[in-house]
Every structure is written in structure tokens, then in C-alpha cells.
């Protein structure tokens, strides 16, 4: 028994003259640790963790939003560029078509005008010819009438003054003079 007590004594003996071992538990320290830690937890929760964690998440959301926005903006811009390209091609085609169309129209118009003027000219020529012919015929008829009149007048005068030769000559001369006038 003596041996056992010595062994126990050795096990729980305190090294050094001052006593105290690292395994000694001081109840006061426990109390102060609890008080300190709880106080620290409460005060830091209020003044630090809440605002800091909020700020961090706020910043993270801000960055996430910004990145998403930038991504969206880039996509939009790319879409816009693609759209622009498409519409540019379309516009070019449109312009080409318009030019083609107007060229065709001009061609058609040209031939039409040309034909029209040709036919008009032809018609004018025909008209002029017929007018000339008509005028000719009219003049001819007038001349014929006049010649007839003159002949009848001359015959009348000849018949009236058919007495002598002198008179006849004079008459013819006079008549000729009249005719001259």
C-alpha cells in the first residue's frame, strides 16, 4: 500500500519549487475567459461582423451585377453590330434594286418617247402631205375656175367687139393688159 501511495504521489506531484503545472485549472481564469469571450462576441457582432459582412456581400453583389451588366451590354452591342451589318447589306441590295429599276424605267421611257416622237413625226408628215395635196387641189380648182372665167370673159369681149381687125387687135391688147394687171 505504501508503494501505491508513493506512485500516486509521484503521478500528482508538482514539479518545481514554485508549484503549478500547465494542467492546473484556475476557476478565475475560466470565469474571465467566458466573460471576455462573450463580451467580445457581442461587441464584435454589433460593431464589426454585421456591417463588415453586409459591406462584403454588398460589394460582391455590386461586382456580380456590374459583370452581368457589362456582359449584357457587350451582347447587346454585338447584336447591334450584327443587326447593322444585316441592314447595311439589305440597304445596299435595296439601293441596287432601285438603281436597276430606275434604269429599266428610263430605258423604257426612252424607247417609248422615241417611238412616240417617231410616230408623231410620221403623222405630221402625213398630215402635211395631205394638207399640201388639198391646198394644191384647191389652188388648181381655183385656177381652173379663174381660167374658165377669163376664157368666158375673153370670149364675151371677143364676141362683143368682133367688128374690125383693128378693134380686134386693140381689144386683144387691152385684154392682155387687163390680164397683166
Amino acid at each position: 500500500m505504501n508503494t501505491l501511495s508513493y506512485l500516486l504521489l509521484l503521478t500528482f506531484s508538482e514539479g518545481g519549487e514554485k508549484g503549478g503545472s500547465p494542467l492546473d485549472v484556475n476557476p478565475g481564469v475560466i470565469l474571465w475567459t467566458v466573460v471576455t469571450f462573450i463580451f467580445l462576441l457581442l461587441i464584435l457582432k454589433k460593431i464589426a461582423w454585421k456591417p463588415i459582412l453586409n459591406s462584403l456581400s454588398e460589394r460582391e453583389n455590386f461586382i456580380k451585377d456590374s459583370l452581368e451588366k457589362a456582359d449584357k451590354a457587350q451582347k447587346d452591342a454585338e447584336k447591334l453590330i450584327a443587326d447593322n451589318k444585316v441592314s447595311l447589306v439589305k440597304a445596299e441590295e435595296e439601293a441596287q434594286k432601285i438603281i436597276e429599276q430606275s434604269r429599266e424605267l428610263a430605258e423604257k421611257l426612252k424607247t417609248q418617247i422615241l417611238e412616240e416622237s417617231k410616230s408623231q413625226a410620221k403623222k405630221m408628215i402625213v398630215d402635211a402631205t395631205s394638207e399640201i395635196e388639198r391646198k394644191n387641189a384647191e389652188a388648181f380648182n381655183k385656177l381652173k375656175d379663174q381660167v374658165a372665167d377669163i376664157a368666158v370673159n375673153a370670149a364675151e369681149k371677143i364676141l362683143r367687139e368682133n367688128l374690125d381687125k383693128d378693134k380686134q387687135v386693140k381689144l386683144v391688147n387691152k385684154y392682155l393688159d387687163d390680164l397683166k394687171n
Binding site: 500547465p22 494542467l23 492546473d24 485549472v25 484556475n26 476557476p27 481564469v29 475560466i30 475567459t33 467566458v34 469571450f37 462573450i38
Partner: peptide, 11 residues
């Protein structure tokens, strides 16, 4: 200090 770490572990 074992008292401190034990208290922290208990919390």
C-alpha cells in the same frame, strides 16, 4: 492555459 482553451472549447 488549459483553463482558457477548455472554456473556449466548452463555448
Amino acid at each position: 492555459n488549459i483553463a482558457v482553451t477548455a472554456t473556449l472549447a466548452t463555448i
